[in-house]
Amino acid sequence: MTSSSAAEPTGPPGSRGLGARVLDAPDISRVVGRISHEILERTRGSADVVLLGIQTRGVPLARRIAARMAEIEGASVPVGSLDITMYRDDIRLRGPRPLEPTELPDEGLDDRIVVLVDDVLYSGRTVRAALDAISDIGRPRTVQLAVLVDRGHRELPIRADYVGKNIPTSSAQSIRVHLVETDGLDEVLLTGGAS
């Protein structure tokens, strides 16, 4: 019983070759700030907003966005975490992985504006799974999506409401996001393939 860690965009930097750094720490900070502003703007001051980070790296991103929103507006935005492993459609292909906690804010999701937060938007299958998971947990008023990187190649009719950076890629390439909370530093790498 092994988790398919090889399939995760994790590992210490350099473990699979460095690749090109497409975002560095200051970039990421700026992007998080911009997304925070956009959410405030779009939700008219963040009342009823719940940030729901998708495990693993969506969770620290959601916390960072909540912190920035608090700095900007002084409002305390509830943050939760969502593990979508049990809702994936590719367990047959990938094998089981350890579950991360799903923790909802005390306010719950009912009638809330839920902003899903994830690091990379790619095929859209993770978001599809997250939407399924949310519908089993509660009934939000609306669900929005914030991502650090959108790399294209959607396989489902899903788009992000807030995008940190669009990075065109080939499907032979990988986007690897490292965050201080999970990996010890902030950076986004583009590796593999011919760019």
Binding site: D90, G95, P96
Partner: peptide, 20 residues
């Protein structure tokens, strides 16, 4: 059941390996 899939699929989808 997941482990069973893992055995048979191996390196199923390298592209999908990046968080989607």
């Amino acid at each position: 059941l997941g482990a069973r899939a893992e055995d048979s699929a191996g390196e199923a989808s390298a592209a999908e390996a990046v968080s989607a």
